Amino acid sequence: MTRTAAVATLPTPVQDPELSSFLLRLRKKNTDVTSHKDTVDSYTNYWDSDRKNIKDTEDSVAERRSNSDKLTNHFYDLVTDFYEYGWGTSFHFARMFRDQSFKQSVAQHEDFLALKLGLKPGMECIDVGCGVGGPLREIAKFSGAFVTGLNNNSYQVDRCRHLANELGLSSLCKAVKGDFQNMPFPSNSLDAAYAIEATCHAARLENVYGEIFRVLKPGAQFACYEWLTTDKYDDKDPVQKRIIHDVEEGNSIAKLYSIPECLAALRSVGFEVIEYNDFADPNSPLADAQEPWYLPLQGKFTFNMEQLHRWRMTPLGRWMTDKMVFSLETLRLAPPGTRKVSSLLNLAADALVKSGEQHLFTPMFFFLVRKPATASAAPAAAGYSRIDAVGH
């Protein structure tokens, strides 16, 4: 069974990148209720069979891989406004040191990549899967390098451009619409690349890693925080499989790779692995100095300004948001399907907390890799080809 043709012709919901209010954006979408509802139904239909039979998901995974670009595009049409409302403009987790605010932790997480890549004025870097550009703008300010954000979602690209203009950063960064598995950049043209919790949306990690390898100059480096399963995850355990499947469904991921599979994918396209580390590992040397990465979603009910600042992320905040959008949809002030989107994100949040508590999954497997300086040092590099077959 396939839904490719139906997805390909699906209209994009009406959205305005210049609107700053979550409620105003819902109101805008409500001017075109049919396309919004169709997009919601299209996305949720992709996961129906897995909900009925979690033991055998291979056919569903194969279909999602073949349509990963469209699937993720529809996902971000639906969730971008919710993400900004609840999380901010940097759509990622971070190491949360006990003496830092959430905002400081997020900025430090981004600046760490700039330091590892040695970014400086005069360098040209690509943000692979840039979202609405929170990390892009932070890294451009921190390093002075010119950063180009690549994103296949039109709404997020427009939102990224608007925010850069609004903050006076257009001279240091830009956003380009394009598929990160088929990048619109010349080979050997960029000084550095990074990705923050974005390449997991690729049909295959080899596809996006191969394209990053192609566009980097010889000797250039790529740094990333990747979403991966850990060695604690047992695919044969139905409870664990359901948790990870809910992470995938709630975040538009066809299939999560494991840590060994990720490293193998990097090497298969020609990269030299310089260093790697799971920053979410509860046994890491700095673990005692940090709060768990999933704490904002889990909630910590203490009365201080930091906790109040991120109340929307907590179970109570998400419950209140869900009830708000239910009421708005019932009163026809929000488009049909808005409640489904809220429920989808709550599913994702609950699964992320469960996966984090058991360390079945990491959203911040950090690695730094390099494209060899000479072609002879990378025998696999020129031989990379896009992978579309089933299975890792």
Rank of each mutant, 00 (worst) to 15 (best):
F279Q: 06
F279G: 04
D281H: 11
D281Q: 14
P285E: 14
A287W: 05
A287K: 14
D288I: 03
D288K: 15
A289E: 11
A289R: 14
E291N: 10
P292Y: 05
P292I: 00
P292V: 05
P292K: 03
W293T: 04
L297N: 00
Q298S: 04
F301V: 05
T302P: 06
T302I: 12
F303E: 12
N304D: 13
N304H: 13
E306I: 02
Q307A: 07
Q307D: 04
Q307M: 03
R310Q: 03
R310V: 07
W311Y: 11
W311K: 08
W311L: 12
W311A: 09
T314D: 06
T314L: 02
P315L: 07
L316G: 02
L316F: 08
G317I: 01
R318I: 02
W319P: 02
T321E: 05
T321A: 11
T321D: 04
M324V: 13
M324D: 07
V325W: 06
F326R: 10
F326P: 02
S327L: 14
S327K: 09
E329C: 13
A334W: 06
A334I: 10
P335C: 06
P336Q: 11
G337H: 03
T338F: 06
T338V: 08
T338K: 13
R339P: 13
V341Y: 02
V341K: 01
V341S: 03
S343C: 03
S343Y: 08
L344V: 15
L345H: 07
L345K: 03
A348C: 12
D350P: 01
D350E: 12
L352R: 04
L352K: 03
V353P: 01
V353K: 05
V353I: 07
V353H: 01
